[in-house]
């Protein structure tokens, strides 16, 4: 039996304190009465109220959400296909290059990705704006989706696909009726990841977007450069809240399902 030593507990506590303390402080100071984000002057939600009247910020938020929804959805389709290609077809011409193009964007410095995509759009004469922004987001998020889905596919029991085909399902039908339902949770978490990555991105967006397509991170960035204000803290808190809610709901749903599955199994055995 493994023992959890005092060292282990200390590492975890310090590690998580380091990870969460800055975020917690940021959230706390978004409710600060004072304009200073370092001196507590009493509780207030006035910065949130003020946000509602900041039309530029609301516009940016709306752009961000639209780009996120579109790019996450397309990236999920592309990323899932890429994951299938990677796991199912171990040998095809240019596979090395293909896997390189999947993994490289995960670590590629954003300035390079952003600059190169911008130069592509200029070279082919696309006007920078909402759609170039969306294309760029699709491209860099699809690789994350591909990696998430791929790891699920690697542990996938192929014999259930063979069973489906044995029973007369075509490959397309097999994919839609058997494979996809099984990997659906991974595909869904791929989508959520792509959406949040799109929501958060600053550098690539800054290169590839144009007039009228300012995203929330771009807006926040330009304000941060002018100084730290509780208003930004409030925006950040809302963004963190949305993401945390999303992750929480997703994990509660998956845990419920798991519990239900275990219950069903026990019921089945009891019969």
């Amino acid at each position: 039996m493994v023992t959890w030593s005092r060292f282990n507990i200390a590492s975890i506590v310090f590690g998580f304190a380091f990870l969460y303390l800055p975020i917690v402080l940021l959230v706390i100071f978004s409710f600060n009465e004072s304009k200073l984000v370092t001196v507590w002057a009493g509780f207030s939600t006035k910065w949130y109220v003020q946000l509602l009247h900041n039309q530029a910020l609301l516009d940016a938020a709306w752009v961000t959400v639209r780009v996120g929804l579109i790019s996450a959805t397309v990236a999920t389709v592309l990323g899932t296909l890429a994951a299938l290609a990677m796991t199912r077809y171990t040998r095809f011409r240019g596979r090395m290059l293909f896997s390189g193009m999947i993994y490289a964007p995960l670590v590629m410095p954003e300035v390079i990705t952003g600059l190169s995509m911008l130069l592509l759009f200029v070279a082919v004469g696309l006007d920078r704006g909402f759609w170039t922004l969306t294309l760029a987001h699709i491209t860099f998020t699809m690789c994350f989706v591909a990696v998430v889905v791929q790891s699920r596919l690697l542990s996938f029991d192929r014999s259930i696909e063979e069973a489906a085909m044995d029973l007369g399902a075509t490959p397309v039908a097999t994919f839609l009726q058997v494979t996809l339902p099984v990997i659906a949770p991974a595909v869904f978490s791929g989508w959520v990841l792509a959406f949040t990555l799109s929501l958060d991105d600053l550098v690539i967006s800054n290169f590839t977007s144009g007039p009228g397509a300012t995203t929330l991170p771009m807006k926040i960035y330009s304000q941060v450069r002018l100084g730290v204000t509780p208003e930004i803290n409030a925006v950040c808190t809302i963004l963190i809240g949305i993401v945390a809610m999303g992750v929480l709901v997703a994990s509660v749903v998956s845990r419920r399902r798991e519990i239900q599955r275990v219950k069903d199994e026990q019921a089945a055995f009891a019969l």
Partner: peptide
């Protein structure tokens, strides 16, 4: 999952 920018920003204060 939370924004890189936000996490960096948090350190300024």
């Amino acid at each position: 999952w939370t924004s890189f920018l936000i996490r960096v920003y948090a350190w300024i204060a």
